[in-house]
């Protein structure tokens, strides 16, 4: 099963096995990863699952939808080139080993 690595405040790491087809948000919420809340349940309308994706995985993700872009632009936390909403990242074989950073302000 593919793995995802969540890096939070103080470089605390959580490594999860995430089945193909499951979003990183759902895996994080199910495993109580600090800083990932997911109030809207995966519709890109709350911004409470903001993560910053490490290279080389950014280019393997689909382009953000309009809703995701609106939400990312509207966040108070600094948004960087790798910023995405974890609810919009669906695990697949080519994402095995993906590392995402949870902004400190969410922790």
């Amino acid at each position: 099963m593919p793995e995802a690595r969540f890096v939070g405040a103080g470089s605390a790491e959580t490594v999860l096995d995430v089945p193909n087809g499951q979003t990183l948000k759902q895996a994080a919420v199910d495993n109580l990863v600090p800083g990932i809340i997911g109030d809207c349940g995966g519709y890109a309308t709350c911004g409470t699952c903001h993560v910053v994706v490490d290279e080389p995985f950014r280019a393997r993700l689909p382009t953000p939808s309009e809703d995701e872009e609106i939400m990312l632009e509207g966040l108070l936390t600094p948004v960087t080139a790798g910023s995405r909403l974890a609810c919009q990242i669906t695990m697949a074989d080519d994402l095995d080993g993906i590392t995402v950073h949870v902004p400190e302000s969410q922790g």
């Binding site: 309009e66 809703d67 966040l75 108070l76």
Partner: peptide
């Protein structure tokens, strides 16, 4: 979704702050 987006973009954290 379409109508919600019309209102929602003005109610994201950066906009309300």
């Amino acid at each position: 979704a379409g109508v919600r987006r019309v209102v929602g973009r003005h109610l994201v954290p950066r906009a309300v702050m």
